[in-house]
Design a protein around this nucleic acid. Structure first.
Lengths: 331, 331
DNA sequence: GCCGGATGATTAATCGTGTAACCATCAGCG
DNA sequence: CGCTGATGGTTACACGATTAATCATCCGGC
């Protein structure tokens, strides 16, 4: 009987029929509009409760054109940063009483586009996209406003963290620890504006100080970094600055496996302050994005309250994976 | 102009008007139903493409009563197991050409219920719930079928992994390594059927072999385990069997901090084969759920293809965090 | 006795789609 | 010529909620 197997939903018509009144009156009673007697209003509410009436979002949305909801499309749920994005948006959505739908691009640009179209067709009031690397979004012509959360260098960008500043913070941190020869570990593959800005921010500072930097590009996964650095010879390098926590985690694994200790022999800095960086040993020095603010600004954009792109500051979180450079320590 | 700021969507009526035909004919042409000339069909498709027509999911869903979509409600995106659940369901959804909506309960049972109602009101064809601990789902009376993915002991359960078997696998693994005194690390707080079954599976095997077990209950987070075991004295215990990877990760952190080495001094086993267990050192011996199968069976249930609850086998993934018991090694 | 105004409801249109039922036209045929 | 069938559409209603426009009553006032 009461198995949660889905019983027919009651509609306003059902309430109206049960009370011998018109559907419009039911609507008015429930929404508190129009003129009607206190008695009728009471009866309607009573009947609605009795029939466990729940207004059909479909019918309402079709009529009003608003769904009080938005969709967010992410590249991959399993990457902790994106999961945290989803959480931050879910909380921001709750503050505004918006319903949120999350979708995963599943590693396919086609799927990403399909999701955007599908969500628009579902009547979402706005679409938030954290784009996959290599996304081309120019000719989409969606029927709903699209908020891109990417990097300041993306002309379609609505909100983003200041990745360039983050890169600069890492660089200054390492310089302050005496590092003079640094490996930059970035993402390879299709263009990522985020990756590019992070590296640019690092390079600007390192170059200005005359610090030697090398660069290695790998797929942004811990496996790739672990394997890619397995045979790597540090030479004079005393620190690794990674553009993503996953790369830093992989780097630590590779170094540890070779008998090098972090941070005594070599420092490693990550980026994003994901939970990964907190559970590995040593815990990662990293850059923290203010995801809550990013999410709230993105929704403000989505609801038409802002127009100019926003740039959200990031902060450095120093932990155990970075320390004074060996030479500096000895000297 | 072509800013992705949402231009008005074209409807079937727009196509009909542009061609001077009736809306029904447009519908027939696009859906391949009814009788109409090849010429008309061509014109309609042409115009549809030209106007970038995309059928309104709202209108269609309202009419047909089906949305070809389902919702999945998860306790917390940030926990890697749930993120992997989301991924597995997303892939299963794609196989069936179903759209998927994900929601996060945000740590609140009320929110969980609210999501269920909201998703039902949005016309989702089915609801999949991975319940928070302490969920009471009996009197919900949702208007859509609800598939609960929990544990075999939950009467509402539709599909679940065989957590009891998983517990047994861990126990047998540790016994095989010579451990005779084991700490079971479980989740405290509101009832979790999953936690209970995992521990039960372990105890059944340990008890049958006359192995001494102790039990500690902690909130299922790595911080709680780390702090909870900080002052713990192992005594004769040579192995820790945790009901969740997060607990195992925290245990490793605590032991390492105290100068004990895993697995030389003490073995630690996790549960769920989350990515956390792969990035920590040592990598965790753990139980792997077949999430893909769980997801596919859940959708089969949701689409009415199955009725009896399903129990999906799990497998042991031996890694570096477990080894022969010190005594066994010496002996 | 009739008008103005307030009260409490109903009617009808709308949103975008799907579909059963109906209708006009024409060819073929006895 | 009238009937049958096929062809190629159109009309009309349904889905569920919202809302502007309308209508019926009743009351007081002149």
């Amino acid at each position: 009987m009461d198995k949660p197997a889905g019983h027919a939903a009651a509609s306003m018509q059902d309430i109206a029929d049960a009370l011998g009144i018109s559907r419009a009156t039911v609507s008015n009673a429930l929404r508190g509009k129009g003129r009607l007697s206190e008695e009728t209003r009471r009866q309607v509410h009573e009947k609605a409760a009795e029939l466990r009436f729940s207004p059909s979002g479909l019918g309402r949305a079709l009529r009003t054109g608003r769904t009080q909801s938005f969709a967010i499309i992410l590249p991959d749920f399993r990457m902790p940063l994106f999961a945290e994005f989803a959480r931050a948006f879910a909380m921001a959505a709750r503050k505004r009483d918006l319903a949120m739908t999350v979708a995963d691009s599943l590693g396919s640009l086609e799927m990403q586009t399909e999701h955007l179209r599908d969500m628009a067709a579902r009547g979402m009031d706005a679409l938030v996209l954290v784009p996959m690397r290599g996304s081309r979004l120019e000719g989409l012509a969606l029927s709903r406003p699209l908020m891109v959360v990417d990097a300041a260098s993306n002309p379609l960008n609505a909100v983003s963290s200041d990745h360039r500043q983050g890169g600069a913070l890492v660089a200054r941190h390492l310089i302050g620890l005496g590092h003079r020869d640094v490996l930059l570990l970035g993402a390879s593959g299709q263009d990522s504006r985020v990756n590019a800005l992070r590296l640019q921010g690092m390079r600007e500072v390192f170059d200005a100080q005359g610090i030697t930097t090398r660069h290695m590009a790998l797929p942004p996964t811990h496996e790739a970094a672990r394997d890619g650095l397995a045979g790597w010879n540090p030479g004079p390098v005393t620190a690794i600055a990674a553009a993503y926590d996953a790369l830093a985690v992989g780097a630590v694994m590779a170094l540890t496996a070779r008998g090098l200790s972090v941070p005594q022999d070599i420092s490693v800095a990550g980026f994003d302050d994901t939970v990964w960086g907190r559970i590995v040993a040593p815990a990662l020095t990293t850059i923290r994005q203010d995801l809550q603010t990013v999410a709230e600004l993105a929704l403000a954009h989505a609801m038409g309250e802002r127009t100019a792109p926003d740039l959200v500051p990031v902060t450095l979180v120093p932990r155990c994976s970075t320390a004074a450079a060996p030479s500096a320590r000895k000297g």
